[in-house]
Simulated scan of single mutants.
Amino acid sequence: MMSASLLVVILIHIYTVTAKLPEPQNVNVQGVNTRYILKWDWEWDQQPANKSIRFTVEYIPSYKYEMKGKKEWRMVCEKIPGTQCDFSEKVNYFGMFHLRLRAKSGRETSPWVIIEFCAEKDANLGPPSKVNVISKKGMLEVSIADPMASENKSMRELQKIYFMVVYWKNTSGAKNVSLIEDKNVAILMGLEPWTVYCVQVQSRSDYYEKKSLFSPMVCTQTTDDGHTPLWLIILIFFLTLALSFGGTLLCSFIVFQTYRVIKYTFFPFYQLPDNIQECLNEFTPMAQYAVLLSKDKEMELCCEKVNIVSEVTHEHSPISETALETDPVNHYRQNSGDSGVYSSEDGSGGVVGTGAPPETAGEE
């Protein structure tokens, strides 16, 4: 009986020595996509003076935890001073695990706190990693980037997700409009032109009914509805017509001026003198070619006969036409074929030239 009482006292003493520290409170896992952090609260006012508190976190797969016998816990965080432990790289997304946590200060320890965790079920789904809104012809094109897991992978590789797009006019009292989209691009139609709309997107998964937080708000102004007004069509038509007519006139003017320059430069309206043209023609390529063809013949110098006529003033004698007609003898003598010279005065001692025989005169 004494031995049993002594054993109870010893056990109580051991328990009071080893379990003197309180256990951590509010132990939970905050997991988003594939990042998992174990967090807890600690009553710092209960911490003994001049004693430092350290925390230890261990894990084990759930199927091993259910097995009888000694359990092989694996260390995650050992003797850390903070109140959180990141074990993202230790567990698999589709696995089931048990985690345990305790506080320790010197030889004093707290009881273990054990929780169960499954990432696929308990981890939250994150919002889209990026949302971009572009205005196109009165519509808004929303580009949505998938939530990202570790190692820069999309969460679509781990579970099926879709998006809920919520948008509204950026005015007071405007109602929200939601749209479900399973692709990464959503088109918002039926919007008012030249109006500012704000957009937020939420990620969702139906397997465990997960809903993420909404992405940051993005606001963009719409443009026109894509239909050109009639007045703008008419204005564009007349502007095009005016530009076409003006361009045609300008081209015609340029062609005309170019034609005039070429014509007056190479085909002038005046003609050079013939003698200058002949001299120029002698030096033309065709003339030189003709000379080369006739180089085996004798070259002749061709000259033209030039008649020089001078103006002569004829002095007429005062003999009238009647006198010529009434003096046939003198006219006959003047035009006779005799070559002698006669004197008009008898016995004047003039020179008598050789002429016709005297008989002709007597016969007369």
Results as ranks from 00 to 15, higher is better:
77 C>Y: 09
65 Y>D: 03
36 Y>C: 04
180 I>Y: 14
296 D>I: 07
289 Y>P: 00
175 K>M: 07
185 V>Y: 02
155 M>T: 03
283 F>N: 13
42 W>P: 00
156 R>W: 03
208 Y>M: 01
191 L>F: 04
53 I>D: 01
143 S>F: 10
170 N>W: 06
185 V>K: 10
288 Q>L: 12
263 K>C: 11
178 S>R: 12
121 K>Q: 06
213 L>Q: 12
291 V>N: 05
204 R>Y: 03
139 M>G: 02
27 V>F: 05
37 I>T: 07
136 K>Y: 08
107 R>S: 14
75 M>R: 14
336 S>E: 02
106 G>P: 04
239 L>R: 09
83 T>E: 07
130 K>I: 05
30 Q>V: 14
347 G>T: 02
135 S>C: 01
360 T>N: 10
263 K>G: 03
337 G>N: 15
162 Y>R: 02
56 T>H: 06
236 I>Q: 13
303 C>E: 10
300 E>A: 14
293 L>N: 00
124 N>G: 12
84 Q>R: 13
101 L>A: 05
343 S>F: 07
215 S>G: 06
344 S>Q: 11
307 N>Y: 15
227 H>A: 09
3 S>K: 10
71 K>N: 02
232 L>F: 09
99 L>K: 03
254 I>S: 07
222 T>C: 03
362 G>M: 15
52 S>L: 15
38 L>Y: 05
308 I>E: 08
97 F>G: 01
325 E>A: 14
192 E>Y: 04
174 A>G: 01
362 G>Q: 15
326 T>S: 06
51 K>H: 12
53 I>C: 03
88 S>I: 05
192 E>G: 03
59 Y>I: 03
15 Y>W: 05
9 V>Y: 10
172 S>V: 14
324 L>E: 06
341 V>A: 09
167 Y>V: 06
119 A>R: 02
264 Y>V: 07
343 S>N: 07
215 S>P: 04
163 F>D: 00
204 R>E: 00
362 G>I: 15
259 Y>V: 06
334 Q>N: 09
305 K>G: 07
223 T>M: 02
22 P>G: 07
146 D>T: 08
115 I>G: 01
323 A>P: 00
204 R>A: 02
